[in-house]
Amino acid sequence: MPELMYREALNQALAEEMERDANVYLIGEEVGRYNGAFKVSQGLLDKFGSARIIDAPIAELGFTGLSVGAAMVGLRPVVEMMTWNFAILAMDQIVNNAAKLRHMSGGQLRCPIVFRGPGGAGGRLSSQHSQALEANYAHFPGLKVIAPATPADAKGMLKAAIRDDNPVVMFEGERLYAIKGEVPEGEHVVPLGKADVKREGTDVTIITWSRMYYFCMQAAEELAKEGISVEVLDLRTLRPLDEEAILASVRKTNRAVIVEEGWVLAGVGASVVDIIQSKAFDDLDAPVERVTGLDVNMSYAANLENATQPDAPKIIAAVKKVLYREGA
């Protein structure tokens, strides 16, 4: 299997789906002649021309709304957000229009559209450029929300998202784009709404998604050296949540730690805890722990930035806590 970077996997998914379906177009800032702010759309303008790879003005609300309108009448737009921080300006169109069209029209309309771009901390960019905003979108009925961690999932889930008849919000990551992994060639479609056990274990389940996955895997490796067997469940899709997979893993290990880059209050992890406590309470041997970004705005200074985010040592500490091995 070829090894690709996350950004190359996304590029492959876009190219394949655009080849397959002329209704698919890509719009966003710098996607065309610049070849993408993060090079996800490298080479696509040459291949598909300027009507399908569209350099948009810096007007997030405008080009997002325009694409929602195009989706209402049969096109399948992919809207690239240079980052999800900027897309806050477009949130009205995603939430008030895309997510509600089917409902407001009583089932007359559908809105097959993908909104995608990097979320989370990019690295030394301070507070306006370093937000993990997926919990905001996971809140809204009418949307699907995905956050793949690996290049293979990035490709397979973007393909599934483009084929989906609903609006899909996709969180990538500036620090994920250069990560390499094996990616199946051609028709590789990963169904939305399905979590994936990325590492099997028996003592504790770590539930995570997106970039935090890599810290979780690192923590699991470290803990294995101490004889602790960690299962890592990558949610991949945040709306709808794969309840079955969450419960199956927790029922097996009886302990859970949830790791999320975003803030603690009303995070996706809070909903995961809710599912566990209401449906698997009797299976738990310890209260569920959450590791989240600190409840502060992100700073520029390297030490402050690092301290704000979850990392392997924080995850290891949380795992030990649910195993009652604190200070061990």
Binding site: L66, A71, M72, V73, Q93, N96, S105
Partner: peptide, 24 residues
């Protein structure tokens, strides 16, 4: 008739997108 919209100005970009689809 593609709808009445309750957020002031929210339908303005949608219309451009529908026209975009016609051109496309």
């Amino acid at each position: 008739f593609y709808g009445g919209y309750g957020i002031v100005g929210g339908q303005i970009p949608l219309a451009a997108g529908m026209a975009f689809a016609s051109r496309y």
